[in-house]
Nucleic acid binder design. Structure first.
Length: 422
RNA sequence: GGAGAAGUGGCAGAGUGGUCGAAUGCACUAGUCUUGAAAACUAGCGACUGUCAUAGGUCCGGGGGUUCGAAUCCCUCCUUCUCCGCCA
């Protein structure tokens, strides 16, 4: 959520930034400020009552110490009203805080300066396009290639678990494992510390990264133990830093981790979810960065370049989109999407998304650093996929197919141990 | 899963109902001394909220309760340790 103090400091600026999402947030912003005023007023009132009651309690303590029992008992009588008062005010304060939070939770992140205004993906800006779309003599979609070469068995997954839980086998499994290892090695070379996080998280972590309470239905939930299957490695990795005050000198903090991801994706059917396009379980290598507020946008560019370097090394043609306000995720201030053209499906496949959240996540996480004035300040968080496996698998299978087989990108050959899938 | 013990500031560790937000040590920061450093000495040193700045308020694993007053008593949850059981 946005910091109420930031909103207070530059209300018009925040409203203007939010307007780039194609919606007017003036009312919500005003509500938030009004509720915060109310919260503060209640707090001051409560503090005064508590201060008085504290001083009386201390006085009683001193009277007892001086054995003036009767005077002490007489003083006790005075505290009844104060106590009642503080109880009422305490409840009012809780209510005021809850009301403020409820409004703040509804306000998305304010898009950054470079983000174009717009309502839908039609308004996204194509930043660059790299390489030529492949010109193939054979154009099978990946699900047919998977069947032809026995790489991924979707039907078998249905039998074992259900739709959206594919079984990778043989060279399919090996290619995927090769990609994961290669991504992790590249991450390490780029200065990211490798993390292998838990893939089940507790409620506090879900709240920390914003999946809870709103998006509860998108995660698999284990009721017996009240744990959630992670929808992305971002959740456990970012939560490493929940309630942490990092050292300013440690910036940028760079983490990278592979994990399975679980998404219920309730209600999505049709050709967009065919094959590997959308799954309930998939693997992803995620990169996470914590940044000093002063240079988080530089780091966003670094992350974008890094992801692009992976795509280039794989020999994939791609384009980079700067998402417009309306298409930028709720928590993000600025997002680049990387898309690979699928010749067979005649559509762009989103293979990565890198975002700068500014303080939006750090606020909920209570992720701070001590600045040069000795004051605690919220850090900026960024993350991105580097990369998500299924669509990269699909891109490789579809774009490197030949009548003689699928040609494995050179960088992966040492990792998977074969040059061609036939 | 069963039995027992424990959770206090960055760390260690006092504190069992009344000037305790918390002794002491270490670590850290600044100063004195020194050519410089070390040592020694002096001072400072938790977080949140709040104020123009003070003041004030909250926080001793989390939540709730008893009391005029809770780190201290009660309930509950979580975590860690020891022993037993089970086990990749």
């Amino acid at each position: 959520m946005l910091l109420i103090n930031d909103i207070r400091a530059d209300k018009e600026g925040i409203i203007a930034r939010l307007a780039k999402r194609g919606k007017d947030f003036t009312d919500l912003v005003n509500d938030a400020l009004t509720l915060d005023d109310k919260r503060k007023a209640t707090q001051v009132e409560l503090d005064n009552v508590l201060a008085e009651s504290n001083s009386i309690s201390k006085a009683i303590g001193q009277l007892f110490a001086q054995k003036k029992i009767e005077e002490a008992n007489a003083m006790k009588a005075k505290t009844g009203e104060l106590k009642e008062n503080s109880n009422t005010l305490g409840e009012q304060l809780k209510a005021a805080e809850a009301a403020l939070l409820e409004v703040l939770y509804q306000i998305p992140n304010a898009p950054g300066a470079a983000v174009p205004a717009g309502k839908s993906e039609a308004d996204n800006k194509i930043v660059l396009e790299h390489g030529e779309k492949p010109n193939l003599t054979q154009n099978l979609p990946h699900w047919e290639l998977c069947e032809k070469y026995n790489l991924i068995d979707f039907e078998l997954g249905v039998k074992i678990t259900g739709a959206g839980f594919p079984v990778y086998r043989g060279k399919g499994a090996r290619l995927q494992r090769a990609l994961i290892n290669w991504f992790l090695d590249k991450g390490r070379d780029a200065g990211f510390e490798e993390i292998q996080p838990p893939i089940l998280v507790n409620e506090a972590s879900g709240i920390g990264t914003g999946q809870l309470p709103d998006k509860e239905g998108q995660m698999y939930h284990m009721e017996v133990d009240n744990l959630y299957a992670i929808p992305t490695g971002e959740v456990p990795i970012t939560n490493i830093y929940r309630d942490v005050i990092v050292k300013e000198d440690d910036f940028p903090i760079k983490n990278c981790g592979h994990s399975p991801c679980f998404r219920r994706e309730a209600g999505s059917y049709g050709k967009d979810v065919r094959g590997l396009n959308r799954l309930h379980q998939f693997d992803k290598v995620e990169i996470v960065q914590l940044s000093h507020p002063s240079n988080s946008y530089e780091l966003l560019e670094d992350m974008s370049s890094y992801v692009q370097s992976l795509l280039k090394d794989l020999g994939l043609q791609y384009r980079v989109l700067l998402l417009c306000g309306g298409d930028t995720g709720f928590a993000s201030a600025m997002t680049y999407d990387m898309e690979v053209w699928s010749t067979a499906q005649k559509m762009w496949l989103e293979v990565s998304s890198v975002s700068n959240f500014e303080t939006f996540q750090a606020n909920r996480l209570k992720l701070r650093f001590k600045n040069s004035n000795g004051k605690n300040e919220y850090a900026h968080t960024l993350n991105g996929s580097a990369l998500a496996l299924p669509r990269i698998m699909a891109s490789i299978l579809e774009n490197f197919q030949t009548p003689e087989g699928i040609i494995v990108p050179e960088v992966l050959r040492p990792y998977c141990g074969f040059d061609v899938i036939d």
